[in-house]
Structures are given as structure tokens and as C-alpha cells.
Design a protein around this nucleic acid. Structure first.
Lengths: 253, 253
DNA sequence: CGGAAAGTTGAGTGGGATCAAGCCGCGTGG
DNA sequence: CCACGCGGCTTGATCCCACTCAACTTTCCG
């Protein structure tokens, strides 16, 4: 069970104790603040596949942590075209992109049965001012989303993007305690294709090629990773680790 | 002159008073906190074209506000390919993507003479806990970067991306008090092409086409926007504003 | 003035989109 | 039970946009 702030579930009750992902608060926590945080959490009824968690243009009030299920976020441009901007899984936060202008810039829809914890953002920010760990966690979360979105916009070649997607899924499944070798996709081919900026036909052919090359084995929504290393090599996802990067900060060209 | 937190320059001195962009703190400010904020600001010597502000892999210590000049950020993947991830201008913050893992995921290089204010992040975050406006500003800044990076990863067609780039530049020039109709590019064609995920040749041809269609007039690095409306229409940049978006939050499929 | 880098132009190629058809799983209803 | 229809997915054929390669021009800077 994913608890919103990575704390072990509160002793004595099975309910979510705190909304920010495993290993968030490694040190000691002031019990008072923690209880305050718990008090902010709004438990919502499960959302079923196809239901919207928020819509593009909605006023922003809450951020939310996914506890169970998969959420797809997508934007619709003024031509009416849909663009999937992300798949979100347990432990992920959604809604962070709406803080700035107070309106959600995208739709969030449940792909399967989703339960989440909602946190009124204003109150959470107020609490963060008194709870350094919480503030730091929020900064890190948002920073990670910036870096992730930036990486996504790079990966140019189709096969690299697909490889990055598969590796990313594998790692996220592992983070949830599932097998990183074999798992079940919760999204359709069309969703994946759209997310990777590919035509569904192209994705289908790519998957077939990956399978022929022994990288993966795909049957419907069942995926098995066979060539993790080669797949990871294909995904130029991770930026190159630069050796001796701590040298001179500034130098003339 | 851009002051880091949008305050008018401190009376009596021309130096930067506060590092977060125009209109940041609309309400009253506690003078004590403000002075503390000013105390955190590190004034650095101007960086000249080609010099690095930070490098991929560098330890993250500071965020920085650009006061003058243009900064290019780019990542290098493990194939050695360069990918420009953004152009940053006065008032913009750089370094926010590094908070999460404590290392910069990209290089930042000055395209012309750049002056910036550096803020030790740890201390700034501590102060933010006592200065709600500052904390809110940081959240908004990061949120905006998430939304921006997400939008960038969409815009698929080459001409749409170029149009979005031009409109974005025009608006940012206007925000700095320059003409939004006619201005000077600070980055090379190669940089722009790389940013837009195009070959330099393709960009050259596209610009020529835009010029033939009367959208812009380009001469070297001098740009004049002639068809703002058509350009804006081409750039599917802004997501469609959804009417009556405040309806039911959740609905079954 | 000369060399190098940046930018433009032209010709040819290829990767991914598009168009079109077929397959398959599934629910519905006769 | 099967016929039917629908949507998701795959396969094939063709097309086109953007990339590549190559040559040339311009600009920059010594």
C-alpha cells in the first residue's frame, strides 16, 4: 500500500497515513505536524476506468497522490487533437502543473480502478512552511517532474522513445513491488502511441520488430522484457553521466 | 532591470534588490524578511558568451535568476548527441530541475553577456518557510516549468513548433519591455533547430517559407513578426480553453 | 586577405504517417 | 448457438515530410 508521504501506515489503522511515497521522511518526524498532515488528507471514493479526476480548465484546488491504479493525463489543443502527456502510477502526484495559473492544463482520466488521496494545496503549502521535510518533498517532486518532462521532449527516434517507455514502466512496476520483467499494461496501444508521438500502426510495427529482435515479448497487454540491457542502451533516456563535472564552474569559450 | 523577486529596485542603490520577476509580491512585505532575502543573493561577475553557468553532473547548490542576457540549457545523451532543452531570458530561473537528485541534469551556457543572481537553495528554502509569498512563488515557478516542458513535448509538426517558438520569443521580448514585433535573436540557427528537434537545413527552409507566406521577415538574426495572428493560430501552443469546465468533477465512462 | 564556422540551397533518401483492408476478441441480440 | 457489429489491434501499400549528403555563399574573426 502506497502511503502519500512515504511513511509506514499509521499503527492501528489500515487507512492511508500520509501521502508522499516511500522513503520520503527518513529522519524523525514531529508527531504533531504529522497528525496535521493526516488531517488534511481527503479520502475519495474509488474512480473507475474512464472517469475523470479533473478536466482541462478546471480550477485547481488539490494535488493528489495515486494510491492504486493508473491515471492518464492528456491535453487537447485547439485543433481538437489529443496529446497524452503522462501515465501516472501509485506514489505519483498529479495536479502539480496547475499550481501556476490556478487551472488544470490537462485532463486526468482513470485507466482502471483508481484510488487517491487528495490534499488541498493551499493548506498543504501552509503546513509545508512549518514542516521542512514536507516542503523539501514538494520541491523535489516538482523538480523531478520538470526533469522528466524535459527528457521526454528529447528522445527523438521512435525506437528510443519506445525503449525508454518500456524501461520506465519496468522500473515503476518494480518500485511497486511487481516484477520488472513481466507485467500487464494498463493502457491501450493508442494511448501509448499517442504518448510517444507515434501513429498506432507505427507502434504496432515497432513492437513486432522489438519482439523479432528478442528485446521484448508482447502478447496483447502482457509484456515481458527479454533484453533489458539492450533495451536500456537503446533508451538514451538517462543523460550521460559526466565524469569530473565538479571542475571549474565557469570558463571562457 | 529585472529584479529577482519582482520588487522595485531598492531605493538608493541600483543593485538587484530581490530575485523573482515582476509582480511577484503584490501585497505588503515584511521588511525584515525582505532584507534577509536580499542577504542571500550572491552577485556574480558577468558571464560572457560561451561560458558555462553550470554543467551536467555538477552538484546542485544554487538556483539563479537571469538579470541580463540569454542562457541556453542542453543535455548530452550517452550517444554524445546534444539536445537543447531551453532558452532562458531575464526573469527566468535556472537550476530548478536539479533539486531532486542534487545534480544538474543539463548544461547551462551563456549565449551573450549574462548577469545573474544566485540563491543558495537550501537557505532560500529555509527562508521560504518563513515567507509564504516566497514559497508560493517558488511553487508557481516550478509548476510553470512543468507545464511548459510538457507543452513543448507535444507540438508535433515542424511549422507548429517554429510558430510556437517565435510567438514565445515575441512575448518574452515584450515582457522585457522590448518590441514584440521586431527583435534580435541571441541564439544561432543551429541552436534553434536543435531545440525544435529539426535539422538546421529544415529550419532554414521553414523560415524561408514563413517569409514567403508573409508570417515573418528574417534577416540573419533580425526577426520581424508580420502575421502575428496567423502565427499564433499555427502554434497550437496554448491548450484549448475548455468552456464550462467547472462541471462535474468525476463521471463514469 | 584567408580560414573557419554559420547559414543557405539543391538533390536524393528514408522513416514514419496515411490510407485501406483484414483480423480478433467481445458483447449483444436474434 | 451463431450472426452481427464494434472497437482495438495488426498488416500491407503508398506517400510525404524532414533528414542526409554535398556544394556553395556569407559572415565572422584572426
Amino acid at each position: 500500500m502506497v502511503t502519500p508521504f512515504g511513511l509506514p501506515p499509521a499503527r492501528g489503522r489500515e487507512c492511508c497515513s500520509c501521502p508522499l511515497g516511500p522513503g520520503c521522511f527518513p529522519g524523525s518526524l514531529e508527531a504533531v505536524n504529522l497528525r496535521e498532515l493526516e488531517g488534511l488528507i481527503e479520502h475519495t471514493a474509488p474512480a473507475y476506468a474512464g472517469s475523470f479526476l479533473f478536466r482541462q480548465g478546471d480550477r485547481f484546488e488539490h494535488i493528489a497522490v495515486i494510491r492504486l491504479g493508473t491515471v492518464k493525463t492528456y491535453a487537447i489543443d485547439r485543433e481538437g487533437r489529443e496529446q497524452t502527456t503522462g501515465f501516472h502510477m501509485p506514489g505519483d502526484f498529479i495536479g502539480l502543473s496547475a499550481i501556476d495559473d490556478g487551472r488544470h492544463p490537462c485532463n486526468a482520466v482513470a485507466l482502471d480502478t483508481v484510488t487517491l488521496c487528495r490534499l488541498p494545496f493551499r493548506a498543504t503549502a501552509d503546513l509545508a512552511a512549518r514542516m521542512p521535510m514536507l516542503q523539501a518533498k514538494l520541491f523535489r517532486l516538482m523538480s523531478r517532474d520538470i526533469a522528466r518532462a524535459t527528457r521526454l521532449s528529447c528522445n527523438n527516434a521512435a525506437d528510443e522513445r519506445l525503449a525508454a517507455f518500456l524501461i520506465g514502466m519496468a522500473d515503476r512496476m518494480a518500485a511497486q513491488g511487481y516484477s520488472s520483467r513481466r507485467w500487464q499494461l494498463t493502457m491501450s496501444r493508442m494511448d501509448i502511441a499517442n504518448y510517444l508521438r507515434l501513429a498506432p500502426e507505427t507502434l504496432s510495427r515497432l513492437l513486432r520488430r522489438f519482439q523479432a529482435e528478442g528485446l521484448v515479448s508482447v502478447d496483447g497487454r502482457e509484456v515481458e522484457v527479454r533484453g533489458r540491457e539492450r533495451l536500456q542502451a537503446l533508451a538514451a533516456l538517462e543523460p550521460a553521466r559526466v565524469a569530473c563535472a565538479d571542475q571549474a564552474r565557469s570558463e571562457a569559450a
